[in-house]
């Protein structure tokens, strides 16, 4: 779109900036503050420079957690984005069933995350849970509390169950927003269903898909409550992703310095990847 230059647009944006900055700037300064200081108890802080950053970045524990996190997020994105898109494409556009679909699909999103973790905890238990018992009776040796692989499987399954609907809802809204005239023109031009998808639907969904990818990337990278309640990070540290690791350091050991540093590094990693995603997906808009 050819946008016109208009500095007065700042007025339209001002309320948003004020609200968000009010909430963002002060806490950020606090975290930065902690990350570069050392505490000797009793609130005595001394300047520690970048020692915490070095410590965190060099720790193998951090590397492990980071790698686990990256793998997890990659799997999540690879499943949820295409799956959400396909389901949105398959959903009815008009009629009574639309309401039914939308409401039912939204339900997993509305459950508080600790309840999600708790219900899957029981649901997947080998002896007393529907999933656990079901899989075992089908012949699989399934016990997520002991087996790292099935712990991963269960965690991924839980996340897919929980969050795919977000992608579906976004893509569905994006799809119904495509004006009918595009489909009519495609019919008149004799386009196949695949051509319609490739040349009309997918391009028009680009922005919505970007939002979905970024949202899922960020939220899965920060995942904490559900995993903590489901596996506690185990067995061992098989499912100890970054947030859980951070939690162990900060609260368990009350090391504010390393925790602060790790938070910042964490944030910067997400920032970097998000920025890359965003730039990649939006590079065409520069015209």
């Amino acid at each position: 779109m050819n946008k016109q230059v208009n500095q007065k647009a700042w007025f339209l944006v001002l309320p948003v900036v004020i609200l968000v900055a009010f909430n963002a700037v002060i806490p950020l300064m606090t975290v930065v503050n902690y990350s570069v200081q050392e505490t000797f108890g009793d609130n005595v802080f001394s300047w520690a420079g970048v020692i915490w950053f070095e410590q965190v970045l060099n720790s193998p524990r951090f590397h492990d957690a980071l790698l686990r996190q990256m793998l997890f997020t990659a799997i999540i994105l690879a499943i949820e984005i295409p799956l959400g898109l396909i389901i949105a494409l398959a959903m009815p556009r008009k009629g009574f069933w639309v309401s039914v679909c939308l409401v039912l699909m939204a339900l997993p999103l509305l459950i508080p995350w600790n309840v999600v973790g708790a219900m899957w905890n029981i649901f997947a238990l080998p002896e007393i849970g529907l999933l656990g018992k079901g899989l075992n009776s089908l012949g699989f040796d399934y016990n997520y509390t002991r087996q790292p692989l099935t712990a991963w499987f269960t965690t991924v399954l839980m996340d897919v169950w929980h969050w795919t609907s977000l992608v579906v809802l976004l893509c569905y809204a994006g799809l119904v927003s495509i004006p009918d005239d595009y489909y009519r023109a495609a019919k008149i031009d004799g386009a196949s269903a695949w051509a319609v998808f490739r040349f009309i639907q997918l391009p028009k969904l680009k922005r919505v898909l970007t939002i979905a990818i970024l949202l899922r990337f960020m939220d899965s990278f920060m995942i904490y409550t559900e995993v903590k309640v489901l596996t506690g990070g185990g067995p061992g540290n098989a499912t100890t992703f970054l947030s859980i690791d951070l939690d162990k350091i900060a609260l368990g050991q009350f090391d504010l310095g390393p925790a602060g540093a790790m938070s910042l590094i964490y944030f910067l990693i997400i920032l970097l990847f998000s920025w890359l995603f965003y730039t990649l997906m939006m590079r065409n808009e520069a015209q």
Binding site: D181, R184, A185, K187, I188, P203
Partner: peptide, 16 residues
Amino acid sequence: PEERNIAQVFQFPVVY
């Protein structure tokens, strides 16, 4: 519409 072999130009431009 496609069987009737028509072409149409819409009110809002439709291009790929």
